[in-house]
Amino acid sequence: MPVFFLITGSVMGNMELREYLSPVISDGAGFISWKVIPDYPTFEHYGKLLFMTPQFFVLFWNSIKLTVIILAGQLIVGVPAAWGFAVYKFKGSEVIFALYVVLMLLPFQVTMLSSYLVLNTLGMLDTHSAVILPAVFSTFPVFLAYGGFRTIPMQLIEAARIDGAGEFRIFCKIGLPLGKSGILSAVVLGYLEYWNMMEQPMAFIENKALWPLSLYLPEITWSQAGSAFAASVITLVPAVFVFIWGQDYLEQGIIFSGLKE
């Protein structure tokens, strides 16, 4: 349903939109109205956004840059850590694991002040790093990748050791291919999360030129409803794409996120 409104809205002409939305815009009497098929469908809003608003490109690029770097960083940091938890079990590792689970469950508001203090000390406020670095060390992807590694039978790893393979080689040749589902779930869930990220940039980035799309969209007012609809659809497209491509991993990821130890 919501998708339908966004798409029809995005191809409606300004005149038409103004007519339907006028009660909302002027806060007057009467009601909002809508048409399933616009009287005069037009792509002018898309054209305007894509070809005449360089600012939109900057924001779109910001969103992509933030999401891709965060995901890459999470994999580089989190996947080996998950392997560590899954393969090398001893008393100490279990304690650290419990700590990671608790940290995973803390909402952003609880870590907001502490993140701010570090970022301030490191002089990173108002840059993209302010959003990227804390997210890279999130423990959620560790937990998901751990879920994938858990399914690997220990005998397989033992056998590889007996054959004389080094630990790092085992990680690359056995861990990565067999733990793929956990890693990809982390990517899909992470993508949907960071494409939609709002709290972090809102708190740590003041310069609007550095904002991601998700934060910029609400700034568009009703008087430019057409652009708002078109921008929403453009924001939605990559998310839908990842959703369709990664639905199995999304489900897998949700299941991994629910595993207890």
Binding site: S214, L217, P218, V233, L250
Partner: peptide, 19 residues
């Protein structure tokens, strides 16, 4: 789950406004 909040909110507003 896949729909970005900012896009959802626009539609919510159309539903829940006074008009």
């Amino acid at each position: 789950l896949a729909m970005p909040t900012a896009t959802v909110v626009m539609v919510w507003k159309m539903f829940f406004y006074r008009q």
